[in-house]
Each structure stands twice: as structure tokens, then as C-alpha cells.
């Protein structure tokens, strides 16, 4: 029994340590920083839109290197943003991919939130999936979310909610009533990234389907 408990906590520490190189700081506001994660090894960073406001964003990697970041796309409606830094990374976040017909997460399963609450770097909180649902964005889109009892605070925004396998199941985005964390489901982020990188938007009509629209949208955002 004690061995099991020891293995369990060891595994927990390893799971979190394995993700930590993919966790970044996003400095997008004058007074506070948010979190983000390396989404692709070519320098693509995923974060919340609301951590970007009023200054040219910078991204600090886990190894301490700091980069000026280009804004690839901001989506205020679903509160996600994609940044690019001019470097390659060794690691990347992996999103959970549920088997067909299965839910992405189960209520009660273990989750870990990684971020920088109140500016405290690389802070981990643990909890479970407390509930799941959908909310309607301002434009009427339905977005799947996860609620968690893992403690979140300002500075967690844009950071990952990981499952026990160390995969991203959500992007920590909001705090409700002080003790309830809300994360946008990872699938929403994946669709967002695919849409930004792979499928041209209506306004990018001059581009061929499949062509990367990152620079085009970059021009639009700035």
C-alpha cells in the first residue's frame, strides 16, 4: 500500500516535470503576466486572448530565454490567441485525443493546473474535473468547458490543465466565484489552431486552400 502511494506521487511529479519545459510565461500586459504553452516545436505558442493587452507580447520559455512574440491570431470570442517566437523548441504540449465516441474528460478524473498564479512562476495545483458543460460566446458559438476544483488565480490564464497522462485537456481561462476554475476544452484550442494554420478564412480569399495563413492573419491582427 505504501509502495503504491509512493509510486503514485512519483508518477505525479514525473508527469508534471515532463510538461514543465512546454510551459511559458506570456508578458502581454503592462502590470501582469499570464501563462501559455508551446503548441508546436517551430515556436507556436498558445495562450488566452485576454492576457494580451496594451503591449507587444514577449514569451519567456521554461529555460529562461525571452523572445518578442508575433501575434498570429487573436480570437476574442473564444478567448484564445496564437503567438509565434523565432526559435525552435525541444518539447511541445500534447493535447488529449479521446477515442471515438468517448468523452475527452470524465468528471472526477485527476487534473493538474500549471501556470504562474500571482506571478509565482511554474506553480502547480491539483484537483479533479468538477463538472463539464458548454457556454455560449458573444457571437453565439458553443464552447465546451471543464470546471475544476484545482485552485486557479490570475497568472494561470492561458496555461494548461493536464490529465493524469500529462496531456492537455483544457486551457485555464476563468475563475468563477473564487473557488471554481474554468478551462476551455483542448479540442476547442485544436480546432482554433487548425483553422488558423490550415484553413484560410473568408478574408484570405486570395490564398489557396491548405496554404499557411499565419503571416496573412498576422498582418491583419497588427
Amino acid at each position: 500500500m505504501n509502495t503504491q502511494m509512493f509510486n503514485l506521487t512519483q508518477e505525479m511529479a514525473q508527469t508534471i516535470a515532463a510538461f514543465q519545459p512546454s510551459l511559458v510565461v506570456v508578458q502581454g500586459k503592462r502590470d501582469s503576466a499570464g501563462a501559455g504553452m508551446v503548441w508546436q516545436q517551430d515556436g507556436l505558442i498558445l495562450t488566452n486572448n485576454h492576457v494580451l493587452n496594451g503591449r507587444a507580447p514577449r514569451v519567456i520559455l521554461a529555460d529562461g530565454r525571452s523572445f518578442a512574440a508575433q501575434i498570429v491570431r487573436r480570437d476574442e470570442d473564444i478567448d484564445l490567441a496564437l503567438l509565434r517566437i523565432e526559435t525552435k523548441t525541444n518539447t511541445t504540449a500534447t493535447a488529449a485525443h479521446p477515442a471515438a465516441g468517448q468523452a475527452a474528460v470524465r468528471t472526477g478524473e485527476l487534473v493538474f493546473a500549471l501556470g504562474h498564479p500571482w506571478g509565482e512562476r511554474n506553480f502547480v495545483t491539483a484537483g479533479i474535473v468538477s463538472g463539464q458543460g458548454e457556454f455560449k460566446t458573444r457571437s453565439g458559438r458553443k464552447i465546451a468547458y471543464i470546471r475544476t476544483d484545482a485552485r486557479l488565480a490570475p497568472g494561470n490564464s492561458g496555461g494548461p490543465l493536464l490529465n493524469a497522462a500529462g496531456q492537455v485537456v483544457g486551457i485555464n481561462t476563468m475563475i468563477l466565484g473564487g473557488d471554481q476554475g474554468l478551462a476551455i476544452q483542448a479540442q476547442v484550442a485544436e480546432e482554433f489552431v487548425q483553422q488558423v494554420l490550415g484553413v484560410p478564412r473568408a478574408s484570405d480569399s486570395g490564398m489557396r486552400a491548405g496554404e499557411k495563413s499565419a503571416t496573412a492573419s498576422l498582418r491583419e491582427s497588427i
Partner: peptide
């Protein structure tokens, strides 16, 4: 499954069983 994933599954099972 590693012990952490097994434990996580067990918690979700518990929530589901008692939740019913």
C-alpha cells in the same frame, strides 16, 4: 496504465457510480 492514470480512472469511476 501507470498508477496515476489508474488512480485518476478510479476516481472518475467513483464519481460516476455514486453520481448515478
Amino acid at each position: 496504465l501507470n498508477p496515476l492514470m489508474a488512480f485518476s480512472n478510479a476516481l472518475a469511476d467513483a464519481a460516476s457510480k455514486a453520481g448515478d
